[in-house]
Design a protein around this nucleic acid. Structure first.
Length: 815
DNA sequence: AGCACGCCGACT
DNA sequence: GTCGGCGTGCTC
């Protein structure tokens, strides 16, 4: 009797694959277990079992599995159906969801290793130059990876070379599975039992009286044991000033014993300090949320900046974990986890786990296992969007902080999911509650709350009665006319900075562009240097004296002459954070200013370092991009300056105004202190613009109504669901034709509004031309059916020979 | 996603 | 003439 399993692979393939298993394997396997399976010529992938059955496939012979990798399911049934939902809704394969949901430590795959054939003689077997190069490299290094061979030969196609070497008996191929997860073991030191008796011990001290250092080590050991009341690690002894060689000699003498225990890498130590109270307003909001949860599964907590939302979250988390449930706390930015972990571990100690993509493989595997086993160590999971995919058992509550943040939507590789929306679906499967928190809710969210679909709780008062900041506008047109500008700073801005710094307070300046200037222009002929691979001008970076492309990273030295007319008169146009920082150095030479943008926050802790030194007041003025707008708290900042509000307003995106509002309000919210009212200065050419006025008046409602009206008129969310189709190809004409073909078919067959094909503002990236088509699905139309139809049409598109080389991506709810 | 197969241009 | 480029199809 044959037995089969259905397996999904971590690839962009639409359907599962069938493998045959033995009866014993069949009895052992369950959906959610991993199996290593051969796939294609000689690759082995980590597949995931989703079903077992006894129906032999008709059209092919099922292959046998290579190995079972788990004793128990690693993925729950709820996860599998949630992944399927993500795949359907966001129009990708379940394999892509699987690949991004699992820590890569779980997704072992084979790697082809090339090794030397031992009885090959290079004298007799004659090799070509390429073949000899590989052979020679193998003399030095016993094994090579395929990629390494490509590097040695400096070629793309190397398999023919390897195949010839195999025929000549010079090398062999091997498939190697690398075990990516290794538990970390910690070395402990102890005294053998016999020394535990009094008389033996004094004898030991006696013996060591002449070996001062060793005696000291033993004494230190006792001290550590007495003070810590737990096993002593070798590291603790080292820290206490005991040299490793001394420990080693004591071990050799049999006085110390060493032993190892596998340890969790991720560990926090907290002191239980639940003794904080909510302010009356917070308490009120807290009670309202609980009442709301009795009726609604999702509730929006609309709390202005600095209203103390976190304390409310903590109180809620406490209730859910006390009732034995798990809590997920999603943040928009990895960098924010550090601050939050400190706060949460203070209350919940070791019950807090952290999960995000910058964590190492091992750490992520550990958190996965803890969540799966409903471990005490992972009652609360803090993480960025990927934490959504952990194997929760009893999920009771999901908190999504700063729910309006666009980073919750994954942009590039598929699955292009929105963590907020996918979280609501997940919570539904767990019968859990969702709390969305924001000072500036997304239009869609606020719409759902006002329509009664979500509960709504407001928190209007700043915590500790901090006054909301005073927001002032500076009209740039006027300031330039009156010649009251120094560089990009108006006299008012300079005055305010001077005053703030004189009071010992700090300043944050916001400019949503990096580099020195976004483009360079020839004064003689007007030529602007462009990226050779993308349709953008090159950004000038003064400190590197370079022109760089923000899309593909292409860079050249700053030219001394115009490439078009040889004129040496080149001018920089526009300004970015780098220029502001340089201007600050001249304006305030004795103050310390620093820049925070993608260019200065590279590296694992780049961001935290800047935040820390700003908190420690080593930096007086911090200049930054939108990174500054994300829920950071600084209590010594008295002034926030927005250098140019206009470039945010004129983006070709239906969300541009909403975004600009959110960004300005969020940045303004950084100006808050306990004792004195903070100040926000906004420089703009459009002081009468509605969005600017709504920011100064703190008029969220006004912004919402106006934007909602626009959304309704122009067929945008929440009234219409969008699916964006992007076509890419290096041949301009080909994408153009393909896009027209696809547009025609879509608009004829879907029965909904289809717009396009549009040449985007930036129509070429990395030498590929781009066209987009926008599909607008009205509320009430069959969303799933339309998406199915889109996929069907795409399949027929793929069947047209001249178009199939055009790469097509789908983005549901593009943000 | 890989990887093999098969067809065309640029070199020995 | 061959090598190596790339477009096409398939993987249980």
């Amino acid at each position: 009797m044959p037995f089969f399993i259905e397996v999904i692979l971590p690839l962009a393939l639409p359907k599962p694959f069938t493998y045959s298993v033995t009866q014993a394997e069949y009895a052992f396997l369950k959906p959610g277990m991993r199996v290593a399976v051969p796939f294609g010529r000689n690759k082995i992938y980590t597949g995931l079992v989703i079903a077992l059955h006894e129906n032999p496939p008709q059209l092919y012979e099922a292959r046998e599995i290579h190995q079972i990798l788990d004793d128990d399911p690693l993925v729950t049934a709820i996860q599998l159906s949630h992944w399927q939902w993500v795949a359907n809704y966001y129009m990708c394969s379940i394999g892509e969801v699987y690949r991004s949901a699992m820590p890569s430590g779980f997704l072992l795959e084979s790697e082809t290793i090339i090794t030397q054939h031992k009885d090959f003689n290079s004298e007799t077997g004659d090799l070509t130059d390429d073949e000899y190069l590989v052979y020679e490299a193998l003399q030095k290094q016993s094994a090579l990876k395929v990629q390494e061979v490509a590097a040695i030969l400096n070629k793309k196609t190397i398999l023919p070379v390897i195949n010839r070497l195999i025929t000549k008996n010079a090398v062999m191929l091997q498939e190697e599975m690398s075990e990516k997860y290794k538990p970390k073991s910690i070395r402990y030191i102890r005294l053998p039992e016999e020394f535990m008796r009094e008389e033996q011990l004094s004898e030991l001290i006696e013996v060591l009286s002449r070996a001062q250092k060793q005696r000291e080590a033993v004494m230190q050991y006792f001290q550590l044991q007495a003070s810590e009341k737990k096993p002593v690690t070798a590291k603790k002894l080292n820290d206490a000033g005991i040299n490793s060689t001394i420990i080693k000699s004591l071990v050799d003498k049999g006085i110390f014993e060493e032993y190892y225990i596998d340890e969790d890498r991720v560990k926090f130590e907290g002191n239980d300090d639940a003794g904080f109270g909510l302010s009356p307003k917070q308490k009120e909001a807290f009670d309202e949320i609980k009442t709301s949860f009795e009726q609604k599964d999702v509730t929006l907590l609309h709390g202005i900046t600095s209203s103390g939302k976190t304390e409310i979250y903590i109180k809620l988390i406490e209730e859910y974990i006390n009732s034995g449930q798990q809590v997920l706390y999603l943040l928009p930015e990895i960098a924010l986890t550090t601050q939050l972990v400190v706060r949460l571990t203070a209350y919940f100690g070791n019950q807090v786990a952290v999960f995000h993509s910058k964590y190492s493989n091992n750490e992520r595997v550990e958190v996965w296992n803890q969540v799966l086993s409903a471990s005490e160590k992972a009652k609360v999971v803090i993480g960025a969007r990927s934490a959504l995919f952990l194997p929760y058992q009893h999920l009771g509550l999901i908190i999504i902080d700063e729910e309006h943040e666009p980073t919750f939507k994954q942009q590039d590789p598929a699955p292009r999911y929105h963590a907020r929306d996918a979280a609501i679906v997940l919570a539904n499967a767990h019968k859990a509650k969702v709390l969305l928190g924001s000072a500036t809710p997304a239009i869609e969210t606020y719409y759902n709350a006002s329509g009664g679909k979500y509960g709504y709780v407001e928190l209007k008062e700043r915590y500790g009665n901090v006054m909301p900041p005073e927001i002032l506008l500076i009209d740039l047109k006027d300031k330039y006319k009156r010649k009251q500008m120094t560089g990009h700073f108006s006299d008012m801005m300079i005055e305010a900075i001077t005053e703030t710094l004189a009071n010992g307070k700090q300043v944050i300046l916001f400019q949503n562009r990096r580099g020195y200037s976004p483009w360079v222009e020839c004064l003689t002929c007007g030529h602007v240097p462009q990226c050779p691979q993308c349709d953008v001008s090159l950004t000038y970076y003064k400190y590197k004296n370079q022109l760089r492309c923000h899309y593909c990273g292409h860079h050249i030295a700053k030219p001394t002459h115009c490439h078009q007319c040889q004129s040496p008169d080149l001018d920089t146009k526009g300004f970015g954070t780098e220029q502001i920082e340089l201007e600050l150095k001249t304006l305030f030479p004795d103050k310390h200013s620093w820049r925070m943008d993608q260019d200065t926050t590279r590296g694992k802790h780049g961001y935290e370092k800047i935040i820390d030194s700003f908190k420690n007041r080593e930096i007086d003025i911090l200049v930054g991009t939108q990174m500054l707008a994300k829920g950071l708290h600084f209590d010594n900042v008295a002034l926030v300056g927005i250098l140019n509000a206009d470039n945010m307003l004129y983006q070709p995106d239906f969300r541009a105004f909403e975004r600009a509002y959110q960004m300005m309000v969020q940045v303004a919210g950084r100006a808050g202190r306990k004792d004195q009212r903070g100040k926000v200065l906004i420089q703009t050419y459009n002081p009468l613009h509605n969005i600017i006025r709504q920011v100064t008046d703190n008029d969220y409602e006004g912004m919402y109504k106006e934007q909602l009206y626009e959304r309704h008129n122009f067929k945008y969310p929440p009234f219409f669901r969008l699916v964006r189709v992007t076509l890419r190809h290096k041949d301009y004409e080909k994408v153009k034709d393909a896009a027209i073909w696809l547009f025609n078919v879509l608009s004829q067959q879907l029965g909904v509004t289809v717009l396009g094909p549009e040449e985007p503002g930036i129509n070429r990236i990395r030498n590929e031309y781009i066209r987009t088509i926008m599909i607008k699905i009205p509320q009430g139309a069959a969303l799933g059916g339309t998406k199915k139809a889109i996929e069907r049409i795409l399949a027929s598109f793929d069947a047209v020979p001249q178009y199939r080389a055009v790469r097509v991506t789908l983005n549901a709810d593009p943000y």
